[in-house]
């Protein structure tokens, strides 16, 4: 572990912004969102969490998959991701990237678009000081101090930040600013442990479950419970689109200046056409079926197929749902 003083942190920020493309949380219209910043002062790091996760920098809402020129037969591959530093990501959102790695990089067909962005963006996480009411990262051990998909973990303690290098990419960045860091002392580590203990205790007093039991969701579906909950759902899909893990995509083809283009973009399993085939047959025809799938997919089906939970406890779906659907109710019942 390394220690970075508050002054050192300012100099690191300035150094990063002047030498690299830096994406950080900024305040706009009463919300926090990730944006490319030009000056270190634009970064707002004392925030609870951003309205939307930084997923779109790795998995854009819409991206070109290929272009095919029928005249020349040339296939244009999409552009590679460009180098950037994503700074100030909360541990839950950083952990979501490691879940996406399990899914999208799984052999034998890793998603090359996602892979190139994961390679070119260095992720620096920042511990939470005050978890929000709707947060439940403790359930999946994805925070509130340390996540699992970041290259560098920053933890704010009194007087500065503790720095943990988590990957080779993180080490390269740190090496470029070596003079700013010092080895963390016993007093720093003590503060770190204390913060970690306090936040974990605070969060587990809100909700504590045995998550390995969630697989039972799949085995014994409580139809009555899901029927009641699904009645509230208005199928707006906000939960999917605000989720740092939801990765399902749709494709769209069109002709653009005599060149064929295919784009892929975010899709949602709440959509009534998500599984409906051209013949009209639909293995998931009712709202209750789709509602059940959303939770089973995250808590049981993704874990079985990809060895990671499809939820990181960021709480966005809880706070954004216009109908009051709350995934924590599902967790409490089955976990």
């Amino acid at each position: 572990m390394l220690f970075l003083s508050e002054d050192g942190f300012k100099r690191l920020l300035n150094g990063l912004v002047s030498s690299r493309n830096v994406i950080a949380p900024v305040e706009a219209n009463g919300y926090f969102d990730f944006k490319t910043i030009k000056h270190a002062g634009e970064a707002f790091l004392d925030y609870s969490n951003t309205r939307l996760p930084p997923k779109r920098f790795f998995l854009p809402q819409r991206e070109i998959v290929f272009k095919h020129d029928p005249k020349t037969g040339v296939l244009h591959e999409p552009a590679l991701g460009s180098e950037a530093v994503l700074l100030g990501v909360r541990p839950c959102d950083a952990s979501a990237l490691s879940v996406l790695d399990n899914i999208l990089l799984k052999p034998p067909n890793p998603d090359p678009l996602y892979e190139s962005r994961r390679r070119s963006i260095t992720v620096i996480s920042l511990s939470c000081a005050k978890p929000r009411e709707e947060c439940f990262c403790n359930v999946f051990e994805t925070g509130p101090v340390r996540g699992s998909g970041e290259d560098i973990t920053l933890t704010r303690i009194t007087g500065g930040l503790l720095v943990e290098v988590r990957s080779g990419r993180g080490q390269i960045l740190i090496d470029g600013f070596a003079s700013l860091f010092e080895e963390a002392g016993a007093q720093h580590l003590e503060k770190y442990e204390e913060l970690s203990r306090r936040l974990t205790k605070e969060m587990s007093s809100r909700i504590e479950i045995a998550r390995e039991r969630l697989v039972r969701l799949e085995e014994t579906l409580d139809e009555k419970f899901f029927q009641n909950e699904a009645q509230k759902c208005v199928e707006c899909s906000l939960c999917s689109f605000a989720c740092p893990v939801c990765y399902c995509f749709d494709t769209e083809d069109h002709l653009e200046k005599n060149v064929y283009v295919r784009a892929k973009g975010w899709d949602t399993c709440a959509s009534p056409v998500f599984t409906r085939m051209a013949s009209g047959l639909d293995p998931r025809p009712s709202k209750v079926d789709r509602f059940c799938h959303r939770f089973c997919h995250k808590l049981s089906r993704i874990p079985m197929a990809f060895n990671a939970y499809g939820c990181v406890g960021c709480g966005r779906c809880v706070s954004l749902c216009p109908a009051g659907v709350d995934i924590r109710e599902v967790l409490k019942r089955w976990g």
Partner: peptide
């Protein structure tokens, strides 16, 4: 939509 286990459309159960 993909045929290679990424798009999520044909993920049923495990």
């Amino acid at each position: 939509k993909c045929g290679v286990g990424k798009c999520g459309h044909c993920h049923f159960g495990r």
